[in-house]
């Protein structure tokens, strides 16, 4: 199979105006991935599936990644007065939710090609086009991403919660999810758990045993 960079160049060459970017991967054997713009996401997916050299007919894995807003610090060489100095500056990287697809070809037996798409932010602008019309394999996994991350998939035939119950309002796989505090008594040496139990213990609630029975 071609490298992701070659595929990216070919997509951009074939149809004008598509936003596809090649993201590096730091792992030793890692392949780069393609970051696709939201507006042309399904178009690119159909291209990848139908292109005779690629024929990526099998979408293996769909998953979400949560990137909360973070501040990145970096050093810049600046002229400070007379001398040139390394000055530490910071910039805020806005948060987003990302959906990652791993594509393989069953007919040509190659892969994987990793494509990813990002939402605008983490609260209001959370919709991306669904790829279930392209690969049905995405159906249940996109529902899972919707349930656990809160990404809204436009064009999904049956977008409901899959793992949690229907009345549940949170998205538990987000990094800032706070789980319900139902740790009443934790006989473990983990400090944070002990602290939580300590904060809950009220004076006068002495006594052990497994309750009234």
């Amino acid at each position: 199979m071609e490298t992701p960079q070659q595929i990216r160049d070919r997509i951009v060459g074939a149809v004008a105006g598509l936003q596809v970017e090649c993201l590096p991967n730091g792992a030793p054997a890692g392949v780069p991935s393609l970051l696709v713009g939201r507006s042309c996401f399904r178009e690119v997916a159909i291209f990848l599936r139908d292109d005779p050299q690629l024929r990526l007919d099998y979408c293996s894995n769909v998953t979400g990644v949560d990137w909360p807003e973070r501040t990145e610090k970096f050093k810049v060489r600046r002229q400070v007065g007379e001398v040139e100095k390394d000055v530490e500056e910071s910039r805020v990287i806005p948060g987003c939710l990302e959906v990652v697809y791993h594509l393989y070809s069953m007919s040509l037996k190659h892969g994987p090609l990793v494509i990813r798409v990002r939402t605008g932010d983490r609260s209001a602008d959370v919709s991306v086009p669904s790829l279930t019309p392209v690969w049905r394999a995405c159906e249940l996994q996109e529902r899972e991403v919707f349930d656990l991350f809160g990404v809204h998939f436009d064009g999904h035939p049956d977008l409901r919660r899959i793992l949690m119950w229907d009345g549940f309002v949170d998205h538990p796989m987000r990094r800032d999810y706070v789980e319900p505090d139902d740790y009443d008594y934790e006989p473990t040496p983990h400090d944070h758990v002990l602290d939580r139990a300590l904060a809950r213990a009220k004076p006068g609630e002495a006594g052990c045993g497994s309750g009234a029975r």
Partner: peptide, 20 residues
């Protein structure tokens, strides 16, 4: 509710001193 208080009440560990 998260537990049935008629059956089960949170035991307090003897290792923990209640706060306050």
């Amino acid at each position: 509710p998260p537990r049935n208080p008629g059956i089960w009440q949170a035991p307090v560990s003897p290792r923990l001193k209640p706060a306050g």
